[in-house]
Write a protein that binds this DNA or RNA. Structure first.
Lengths: 214, 214
DNA sequence: CACGAAGTTGACCAGATGGTCAACATTTTT
DNA sequence: AAAAATGTTGACCATCTGGTCAACTTCGTG
């Protein structure tokens, strides 16, 4: 049944549905990041997407469903970025690439990171299932990989999870706490140069911290 | 005028006002951490404090005022903890003590950390003034201190702020993202032992990361 | 014990919220 | 060009929100 799905993907003029859903999802990511789940009203999201509220509810019947889609999107972006860890067998190369990728994501998609942080702080009421399946599996396999590096004596003996948490915490801090960092930078956002410097510093401290001096 | 303030602090039977304000502030910290500012209703806070909503508004006329007090409390706890950095001139000793103190706080007062994180993520609408005054001053002075260690060749040349951010990010991650960590720990909260292990790992990686091998 | 101050509380209010719906407009298909 | 499917929207609704208030009780003190 229904095996005859057309191609219908993309095109010079995306379908009305695609266009509107994209506008709504973008607006939703902004507003959820800025106000949190409860503080984000569908009216405000609709306004920012440039459509009436009733129209938003035509595409996304419930606020929770919209929110879920926003979170899953971010999660997928991060999962893809996580491949950076697998592109090499060399710990220095793999971790450098992973940290850089995560730092770049913190700069290019800070909103997603904030929405994620909010969701976790509030005990993941919406995406708990993802944590228990996809994230758990991903983490376990990477922890094993790191443990192998340790067993082979290529990096210091640290708890693989503690290392992963430090990478997540530090890189995401540059997105989630960007406002604090900006304030402590005389109110100015980090310049391109400062950002590069931050990346260098984070990478260097962590790598040296697990026994990989520059 | 009014120079005749009585002592009235504490006592075997605290004043009704003190007792109730404490109950409300504790409940508020819980609820704000759990639901965010907008998601936390004064009704829910009152319920958790075991009093009617109208009574809560008798002690704290506005939700924003109550929230502000919760945040300032946390901020002060952290400021005090930050003294750990000053108790020694030796970088290893000072930083070890600071990291340990912050890790302990993440465990003993995770709610406060969550409320703070929420506030910063949402661009500090309420405590921006604190960021620009107290936090800015504190950070500048500690950055200078760290820079001195660098100039004296006692630790590696890293951006002092990058180091502070890493310490904040990593230690607070254990509070803010506790739910994620628990989920990745087979759904069980970190045991006393795992917590000690985490502290050791965090301290070790950071210290080694700035050129202070164990 | 009397009396003012402090504390308690149910009932109430105006505004905002997520979500619905029926009437209408546009696009796609035949 | 007609019909069917898809998209648009103002008006509407029940519920919840922060906050108020007046009537009441309890407490501290001379």
């Amino acid at each position: 049944m229904g095996a005859e799905r057309a191609i219908e993907e993309q095109g010079p003029k995306a379908s009305i549905r695609e266009e509107n859903e994209k506008a709504i999802l973008d607006a939703a990511e902004e507003v959820f990041a800025e106000y949190g789940y409860s503080g984000a009203s569908t009216k405000r999201i609709a306004d920012r997407a440039g459509i009436p509220k009733a129209n938003l509810h035509y595409y996304f019947p419930t606020k929770e469903g919209l929110y879920r889609k926003v979170i899953v999107n971010i999660f997928n972006v991060w999962l893809e970025a996580a491949n950076a860890l697998d592109d090499s067998n060399d710990p220095r190369e793999a971790l450098t690439r992973y940290i850089h990728t995560k730092m770049d994501l913190s700069r290019s998609r800070p909103l997603g990171s904030k929405v994620w942080a909010n969701e976790i702080i509030q005990r993941a009421p919406i995406i708990q299932d993802y944590l228990e399946t996809t994230l758990r599996a991903w983490t376990a396999s990477r922890a094993t990989m790191i443990q192998r590096w340790i067993d082979e004596g290529r990096i210091s003996a640290v708890d693989p999870r503690a290392l992963l948490y430090m990478i997540w915490a530090t890189t995401q801090h540059y997105a989630d706490f960007a406002h604090q960092i900006t304030t402590l930078n005389e109110g100015k956002e980090l310049s391109d140069r400062q950002w590069e410097e931050a990346k260098r510093n984070v990478t260097e401290i962590i790598l040296r911290g697990i026994g990989l001096p520059a």
